[in-house]
Structure formats: structure tokens, C-alpha cells
Amino acid sequence: MKEIAVLGSTGSIGTQTLDVIRSHPDLFHARVLCANKSVEKLLRQAEEFHPAAVVVCDEEAGREFKSLYTGPAEVIIGQEGLTEAALRDDVDLVLVAVVGIAGLAPTLAAIGAEKELALANKETLVAGGSLVLAEARKHHVLIRPVDSEHSAIFQCMLGQDRKHIHKLLLTASGGPFRGKTREELKKVTLADAMKHPTWNMGMKVTLDSATMFNKGLEVIEAHWLFNVDYDDIEVIVQPQSLIHSMVEYDDGSIMAQIGNPDMRLPIQFALTYPERLPSPSRQYVNWRDIASIIIEKPDLEVFRSLKMAYEAGKQGGTAGTAFNAANEEAIRAFIAGRISFLSIYDVVEETLSRFISREIHSYEDIMEADRLARALAESEIRRIAPC
């Protein structure tokens, strides 16, 4: 029985992880459930999965949960509870599915404690990839990617010599605005941006898909996970979301990982690696219903996020931290109605132009860079926001 700490249990990845655990009760147990403030959902999860501990990061929500919860689990309130969960002696595997920079501290804690690690938080590697990978090498921890694209690349590399990799082909769905012009995106609303054509995801990831910042984050994440130069990572659009990514080798052979767009597949593989088990979805690709596979190039003039991601990644140091922080602040401002959809790109671009990147030596370096970048982003948001 593998004991799992699910960090972000009430989010999209977390709930699908629990679906995988539910499907294999003889193999997995949710030892710790962690959420930000979804009290009702967390209460239902605690009642069903009988964890040893429950973490609620938001203090007000934590007090509400504690007043309503009648079970035997230990209740931990506060953001530091994520790290406590990752360090517990009774946890074998830590699945990090919280959103944003909040995933960095528990990821480093899990690595330091030499836990099995399944990572669904791309911001951790974007903001602090050099530090995270150095710690993973030091403690001999294999980071098992949960993102469908990085899981696909990971699977395409199994049994292969990495020195023969020619290129990583990172696929994107194109999101809800594939094929749109900049003019057509001027009046985009939050509701428009949330209409993803193939994936059911949380708000932050769905909006990042609409702007393609999600793919920019994934380019930087792929660089760190697989030690591949940025010039050897190419983004292509595959709107059916059947090809989850590909690896091209020196001899011209291309390995592709193909499957239905169901996040439970990469989640389960991260939990069972190197074994494979029947999926909870029990669905297979029906090739008779597919007339053709569509492959397109992304529009780099409309989706400027990709250019910025490559530039930040190549610059190195804390530039990736700034890229991630500025995007988080811009997305938050868009959700609040403070800026337009296209202004998300402007905020990140201006932040990066003013940010001075420095080398990363510690967790504190990353968090200070994160703070400075958010301040720059907020100043730009205030400048362009309508009065």
C-alpha cells in the first residue's frame, strides 16, 4: 500500500488523483489531503478517504473546516502545512498539485526527505528549476511529471539514450482562441477564455491555456526536467489533444505518446511508475472516428507568451521566476476585471523588460525575485488599468 499526500486535493488534478486512488484501493491510500479553502469539498473527501491528516492553507477556511469536521484526522491550518505534509514519515509519495509558487517549498521538502515525487505544478520548475534539479540530483529523487505533455516526453524517453535526442516536440491544443487574430481578442471576456475545447482544468491553467502562457511555462519546465536546450524544444499545435508530445531522435525517428485527453492517464502513471495499470477511464482511442490528425504552427505574433518564455528561459537565473510571477499577477488582474485579455501579455512583457535577473543560490533568492517581479507587475497593472 502506497501512502500518498495529495497537495491540492480539491483542484482539478487533485480530484482526478483521488479518482485514481479510488480505482485502486488495494494499492493506494490518501494519507494526507491538502486544500486552500474549498471546505465543503474537503469535508466530503475526508469522509470518503479517511486520511491521517488534513491541511487547510487558508486560515479562515481552516477554522471553518475544524468546526465542521468530526473525524479523527489531524487538522493542520496554514500554508506551512503543505511542507509538513511532504515531510511526514507515514507518507511515501507526494503529489504536488497546488497552483503557483506555493508548490516550491513542499516540492523542495519532499525532495530533501527523499520521497517519491509526482509534480503537477509547473511553476515550481519555472521559478526555481536550477535549485530543484540540483536538490533532486543530490537526494537521488526522480521527478515524475504529471502534466500530460511532460508525462508524454518522459514516456517517449523510456529505454532510450538521452544523448541521442534531437528535439522535443511539445504539443499545444491551441486553447479556445486558436486561429484568432489580435483584433478578435480585444473584447475577450473571462467567460470566453474559460471555454477550453478539450480539457477540463482549473481556472488558472485554463486561462494560461487561452493565452498560451501555459505552453511557455511548459517549455521552461521541459528544459529543466529533460536537460534539453531551448533551441531543441519546439511547440506545435495539435488541437485534437490526441498526441500529447513527441521526441525526435538523431536518426530521424519520432516517438509519440498518444491517448485520449484524460488527465487520469498521466496521473496514474506517475503513481504506478514503472508499472502500468488499467485506467479509471477505461476508454481507448477510436481511430475509426478520426479522419485526420491536425498539426499546426503556433501564431507567435498573437500569442507573444511563447517568445517571452524562450527569452526568459535562455536568460536564466531568476528571469523564469519573474516570467511566472508577472503572469500570475496579470491573470489575477484579468479575473478581477482590472485589465483586458491582451493586457496580460503587456504586463508580463513590461515586467521582464524592467526586471534584473540574478543567479539562484537558495530558496530565499527565488522568493525575493518573486516578490520584486510581482511588485513590478502590479505597478504596470495600475498604470494601464482604467480609472
Rank of each mutant, 00 (worst) to 15 (best):
A134M: 05
F355D: 01
L27P: 11
R354N: 15
V348A: 05
Q16E: 13
G252N: 13
S281P: 08
L342N: 07
T211A: 04
V237W: 04
D208F: 00
N327E: 03
I111P: 11
L18N: 10
N286R: 08
F177D: 07
Q155V: 08
T107P: 12
N121G: 12
C34P: 06
N324Y: 03
G175I: 02
P25E: 10
I220P: 02
S241D: 10
Q283A: 14
D365R: 02
A109N: 06
P176S: 12
A210Q: 02
L125Y: 02
G71N: 04
C34G: 15
F323M: 04
A377I: 02
R178F: 15
Q268M: 13
H361P: 01
V235C: 14
S148C: 13
P106K: 09
M255P: 01
L372D: 12
D251R: 05
P239N: 09
D147I: 02
A325Q: 09
E40D: 15
S279E: 09
E364P: 04
N214F: 09
L95N: 10
R22A: 13
D370F: 00
D147S: 13
E183T: 11
A53Q: 14
E48R: 09
M157S: 09
I101N: 05
P280L: 08
P145G: 12
D90S: 05
V141E: 03
E349F: 02
P145T: 05
L68N: 06
S343G: 07
A336M: 05
R371C: 07
F269G: 00
R282Y: 15
K215I: 05
I76K: 07
R162Y: 12
T17G: 12
S130N: 07
T83D: 08
D58Q: 03
E84R: 07
V347F: 10
G81A: 06
I356C: 11
T181C: 04
A105G: 07
P145F: 09
